[in-house]
Simulated assay, not measured.
Amino acid sequence: MIIQKKWLIYALIFLLLFIALLFFQQNRETASVIVEEPVEVVQENLESMDKTIESAILWVDIKGMVQKPGVYQLTEGDRVKDAIQIAGGFVEDADELMVNMAALVHDEMVIYVPMKGEEGEGTYSSQRVMAEEGKVRINTAELNEIMTLPGIGEQKAKSIIEYRETNGKFQSVEDLLQISGIGEKTLERFRDMVIVP
């Protein structure tokens, strides 16, 4: 009788251990599934962050009367003031009044600082690029520049600026169709006059 009780106790202990082992194994598998999903999500987030950082890098050519002319790397949101500072600042004969220090820089921008008394218009290239190429950089253009496009008045130009400030840069010319009042016909009138991105 005592031996039967001992075997019964051993059997119960074995059964409890077996149930505990199954429970532990099931929780372990569930935990591993829970851990794997966030890793993939984090990896996707890191990739999108890398793309964002990559798209935020701008290359700017600084010429003229600065200490160290050359091509410099800046980031989205930097101003001409920041670019001049990176280039070592103005030299003594620089005509600082001819440069709009508050202008936002854009990729492939040329900033030219003229010498005092130099003839011609010395300024950063936002207007200069527009004059040379006859095109508007829609992601950096100011209100008056956007209004030079056929069929774009002040209200539509404001809508374009508001859209890019809210949703980020335009990735293609077709993105302008998202603006209220700009349809296919209007877009065709100025499609070749716009630089995107």
Score class of each variant (00 low, 15 high):
I2S: 11
I2E: 11
I2K: 13
Q4M: 10
W7V: 09
Y10W: 08
A11V: 06
I13L: 13
L15K: 03
L22Y: 08
F23W: 11
Q25E: 10
Q25L: 14
N27S: 11
N27G: 13
R28N: 12
T30W: 07
V35W: 07
E36A: 15
Q43F: 10
N45D: 06
L46F: 11
S48Q: 15
D50Q: 14
D50H: 08
D50T: 10
K51H: 09
K51P: 00
K51A: 15
T52I: 14
I53W: 04
E54Y: 11
A56L: 04
I57D: 01
W59G: 01
W59D: 03
D61E: 12
I62H: 02
K63V: 05
G64I: 04
M65K: 14
V66M: 07
V66T: 05
P69I: 02
V71I: 15
Y72L: 02
L74V: 03
T75H: 10
D78I: 00
D78V: 00
V80G: 03
V80R: 01
A83F: 00
A83W: 00
I84R: 00
I84Q: 01
Q85P: 00
D93G: 05
A94L: 04
A94M: 06
A94S: 03
D95Q: 08
D95E: 12
D95M: 05
L97F: 08
L97T: 13
L97M: 08
N100G: 11
A102H: 07
A103N: 04
H106N: 06
M109K: 02
V110S: 01
V113P: 01
M115K: 15
G117M: 04
G117E: 06
G122I: 04
Q127Y: 14
R128M: 13
R128F: 08
V129Y: 13
V129H: 08
M130L: 13
A131Q: 12
A131I: 14
A131R: 14
E132I: 14
E132K: 11
K135E: 10
V136A: 04
R137F: 13
R137K: 10
R137H: 07
I138K: 00
N139A: 06
N139Y: 02
E142Y: 07
E145N: 05
E145C: 02
E145L: 07
I146C: 05
M147T: 09
L149C: 05
G151W: 02
G153T: 04
Q155W: 04
Q155L: 11
K156Y: 03
E165G: 06
K169E: 12
Q171E: 14
V173W: 03
E174M: 09
E174Q: 13
E174F: 06
E174T: 08
L177V: 08
Q178K: 15
I179P: 01
S180Q: 15
G181C: 04
G181L: 04
G183A: 05
E184V: 12
T186K: 14
T186E: 10
T186I: 12
L187M: 07
E188C: 02
R189G: 12
R189E: 15
F190C: 05
D192E: 15
V194E: 02
P197S: 01
P197H: 01
